[in-house]
């Protein structure tokens, strides 16, 4: 029996049989189209306004030197970084939430983003590094934090709730460590660090685009191969181990991928809050009756960050808000809702 809206594609005499949910495929395309449309719109909007046709002409290689400078050199890196980090945060959240069978186990809630921030900030203020060295700081910070969370929470197997509680504790410790770094830092460092710590897409350049595009290019193939195991991993440890050969290794590979995605997205745009938490939850509700598949979740994340950045740029123009301030306003109520619900039913399935 196949679920109602499923399409099965057979090819190569039955050696290939892919199952696609029509709703999921439609939704993914629609969300990506919406994200791209917003992205193109955002390229034309701002102090230097362009009409849509002009924007497309500039992207196609036409336009004046000034138009090219504004659209391609100034705004395009910001837009591409936004789409990329949105997708990366959402993928990271969807993977971790499903493995832990708990929507609160998101990199932004359990401290993975905070670990990446601390690592990057350490490089920024103490080592005095910038650019590529921030990437290593963020990655090392996120990996060490995740390892610490898992080690502390580990007690005869992983339990979603202990992971959340330990993660929140470690995130709190990291936030005071971050405060300490800020107090010690030079004034000009503090200004840029503060904006970066809220999560900001301002002044993104080729480096940030490279970070996030390379990360996605590395992560997506891994997820194409291993992502299908999530539908069994989310059934709990015992069933996962009886239904998958080598469940432990697959789960570890997926967790490392998820942590790396969150770390690199943080390195590229700062710890933009709530995207990883909210995007999979929105996706799950849009998909009605299914788990948050990775494709639509990534599209939702890209759409959310692009939309939030547009709001951040235009709402109080010419003053610009960091995008993280907008996602915080949108995401915090969702976190409250999930917490309240978890309390009521005793679990956060």
């Amino acid at each position: 029996m196949t679920a109602r809206d499923t399409v099965v594609v057979h090819a190569a005499r039955g050696t290939v049989a892919l199952r696609l949910s029509r709703r999921s495929a439609l939704l993914t395309s629609a969300l990506w189209l919406a994200a791209l449309a917003l992205a193109v719109a955002s390229l034309g909007l701002g102090e230097f306004d362009l009409r849509l046709a002009d924007t497309l002409r500039v992207l196609g290689g036409g336009g004046t030197l000034i138009e090219y400078d504004v659209v391609v050199r100034d705004r395009l890196p910001r837009t591409v970084t936004g789409l990329g980090v949105g997708a990366a945060f959402a993928l990271s959240g969807a993977i971790l939430q499903r493995i832990a069978a708990n929507p609160l186990v998101s990199p932004d809630v359990i401290g993975v983003n905070a670990g990446a921030s601390f690592g990057a900030l350490l490089v920024m203020t103490v080592v005095g590094g910038a650019g590529a060295s921030l990437v290593f700081g963020a990655l090392a910070g996120a990996m060490l934090t995740s390892a610490a969370i898992v080690l502390v929470a580990l007690n005869r197997g992983l339990n979603g709730y202990r992971l959340v509680l330990v993660g929140i504790g470690i995130a709190a410790m990291l936030s005071s460590a971050i405060s300490y770094l800020l107090v010690r830092a030079e004034y000009h460092q503090v200004l840029s660090a503060a904006s970066w710590l809220t999560g900001s897409l301002a002044n993104r350049g080729a480096l940030h685009v490279t970070i996030i595009v390379a990360t996605l290019a590395a992560a997506v193939p891994v997820l194409l191969v291993l992502g299908r195991h999530l539908r069994v991993l989310e059934l709990g440890d015992d069933l996962a181990r009886t239904l998958i050969g080598g469940a432990h290794r697959i789960r570890l590979a997926l967790i490392i991928t998820a942590v790396a995605l969150a770390a690199m997205a943080t390195a590229a745009a700062g710890p933009i809050g709530f995207i990883a938490l909210v995007a999979p939850q929105i996706t799950r509700r849009l998909l009605a009756g299914r788990s948050a598949a990775l494709g639509p979740a990534a599209a939702t994340g890209a759409l959310l960050v692009t939309g939030a950045d547009l709001v951040a740029r235009l709402l109080f123009a010419p003053t610009e808000l960091p995008v993280g301030a907008v996602t915080g306003v949108l995401g915090a109520p969702v976190l409250l809702y999930l917490l309240a619900r978890a309390n009521r039913i005793g679990h956060t399935g």
């Binding site: 679920a3 069978a101 929507p103 059934l235 015992d238 009756g289 299914r290 399935g349």
Partner: peptide, 11 residues
């Protein structure tokens, strides 16, 4: 065992 939130029986 605990089923993921909202999934259908067939799934």
């Amino acid at each position: 065992p605990l089923a993921p939130d909202g999934i259908t029986v067939a799934d």
